[in-house]
C-alpha cells in the first residue's frame, strides 16, 4: 500500500535523539534515529521494555520534543513547534490509539469519538456525520449512546480506534493497542487495523509482542534507544522476523 518511493515521506526522522535529564543522571532514551514512513505504510516498532519505543512514539505524535535532530511531517519540520501548533497538528494529522483505550468515562461513545472534531471547531452537523461514520467503520455504530463503562474491553478499543480515525489523520499511532485485551479481542483489534491499512491508512504501532508485529509491513527493532534492525514483510501477517 506504500506510495511511490519518489514521493516525499510522510514522516522523516534524521539523527533524532532524546535525552532525559534528572538531578544526577543523563538518560539517552533515543540516539541517532533515522526513520522514514511513507504514506500508506504499516510500521511496527518493536523492542524490549525500556528500549525507547514509547519515547519514539510520543515524539512521532508530537507529545514530546526531541533533544536533537530533525522531524519532518508531510515535509514540514515540526520538532520546534510551540504547544498550540503541536496541538493543532496532533488534532489534524495524527490519530492516537492507546493501550488503555483512554476513553473518557463521562462521555458517551459518540461524544468520545466526536471529541477531536470538537477541538477542531467543526460544525455540529459535520461532526455528527463523521463520528457516526467512524463508529460504523469499526462496527460500533449501534453502541453510540452507551457509556464506555458499559462496553467490553474489545469494544472500548474499537471506539478508541474510531476516535483516532474520525479526524482522517495522516497517520494512526497505536501504542500497544492489544496490551489490555485478551487474545480473542486482541486479534479482533489487529484485524480491524489491518482492514484500516488495506483501505489506505498509515499506521505506526508500538508493540513488544512479535506475534502482533508480524501484522505490519515493516518492523523496526529498537534496543537501548537505537534502531538495531528492520524487517520488511512481503505479505503482511506471514513474514517471520
Amino acid at each position: 500500500m506504500s506510495t511511490s518511493p519518489t514521493a516525499p515521506p510522510l514522516i522523516r526522522l534524521e539523527n533524532l535523539s532524546k535525552v532525559f535529564y534528572t538531578d544526577e543522571v543523563e538518560t539517552h532514551a533515543l540516539a541517532g534515529i533515522h526513520l522514514e514512513i511513507q504514506k500508506g505504510d504499516y510500521v511496527a516498532i518493536a523492542g524490549p521494555s525500556g528500549c525507547g519505543k514509547s519515547t519514539l512514539l510520543s515524539i512521532l505524535g508530537l507529545l514530546d520534543s526531541p533533544t536533537d535532530g530533525l522531524y519532518q511531517l508531510n515535509g514540514n519540520a515540526v520538532q520546534d513547534l510551540d504547544l498550540a501548533q503541536r496541538a493543532r497538528i496532533r488534532n489534524r494529522e495524527i490519530g492516537f490509539i492507546f493501550q488503555s483505550f483512554n476513553l473518557i468515562g463521562d462521555l458517551t461513545v459518540f461524544e468520545n469519538v466526536e471529541l477531536p472534531l470538537t477541538y477542531r471547531g467543526m460544525r455540529s452537523a459535520e461532526r455528527r456525520d463523521r463520528s457516526q461514520k467512524a463508529l460504523e467503520r469499526v462496527g460500533m455504530g449501534h453502541r453510540a449512546k452507551h457509556l464506555p463503562s458499559q462496553l467490553s474491553g474489545g469494544q472500548q478499543q474499537r471506539v478508541a480506534v474510531a476516535r483516532a480515525l474520525v479526524g482522517e489523520p495522516s497517520i494512526l499511532l497505536a501504542d500497544e493497542p492489544t496490551g489490555n485485551l485478551d487474545s480473542r479481542n486482541g486479534d479482533a483489534v489487529m484485524e480491524l487495523m489491518r482492514d484500516l491499512h488495506r483501505n489506505g491508512s498509515t499506521i505506526c504501532m508500538v508493540t513488544h509482542d512479535p506475534r502482533f508485529a508480524r501484522h505490519a509491513d515493516r518492523t523496526i527493532h529498537l534496543f537501548d534507544g537505537r534502531v538495531v534492525d528492520e524487517n520488511v514483510e512481503a505479505a503482511a501477517g506471514v513474514g517471520v522476523v
Partner: peptide, 16 residues
Amino acid sequence: TREIGVRLALGARPAT
C-alpha cells in the same frame, strides 16, 4: 490528569 492528557493528545490546546 490522564484524561486531560488524552484530551491534549487528541488536539485540545492548553487554553481549551
